[in-house]
């Protein structure tokens, strides 16, 4: 399981996290991706990075499906406290509460936070 917890662009963690997810998916690992905290901003619609000189990558999340990464989860509290709803996001993700995500975490062999 990969946990994305940083906003995009301000640090490289989310971008390099996504690179890791794509490679691991290519190795046919059963992956899930969870967005917690500022990680939810990675999925926000309408990002335009042309003015900051950094390559945008929000659309890459749409490609995850093509790599068979279908288990995308988002923490309901993180979303709500940022004034966002699932409609504000570039991909379909399953909105879960913390206990549900906690139970998923407990099932994992490996968890990597980015």
């Amino acid at each position: 399981m990969h946990v994305l917890r940083h906003a995009p662009h301000g640090t490289i963690y989310t971008y390099e996290g996504l690179e890791m997810i794509l490679i691991m998916a290519a190795y046919e690992q059963d992956l899930s991706v969870v967005f917690i905290g500022d990680g939810v901003y990675a999925l926000k619609k309408g990002q335009d990075t042309s003015g900051i000189g950094i390559k945008g990558f929000s659309k890459t999340f749409m490609a995850l499906d093509g790599y068979d990464v279908e288990k995308l989860y988002i923490d309901s509290v993180s979303l709500a406290e940022r004034g966002l709803t699932a409609d504000d996001l570039v991909v379909d993700v399953e909105v879960l509460d913390a206990e549900e995500i906690g139970r998923l975490m407990k099932e994992q062999d490996v968890i990597i936070h980015h």
Partner: peptide, 10 residues
């Protein structure tokens, strides 16, 4: 953040 996801006993 962490303690919201921790299950009892962990």
């Amino acid at each position: 953040t962490c303690i919201r996801f921790v299950l009892p006993g962990d």
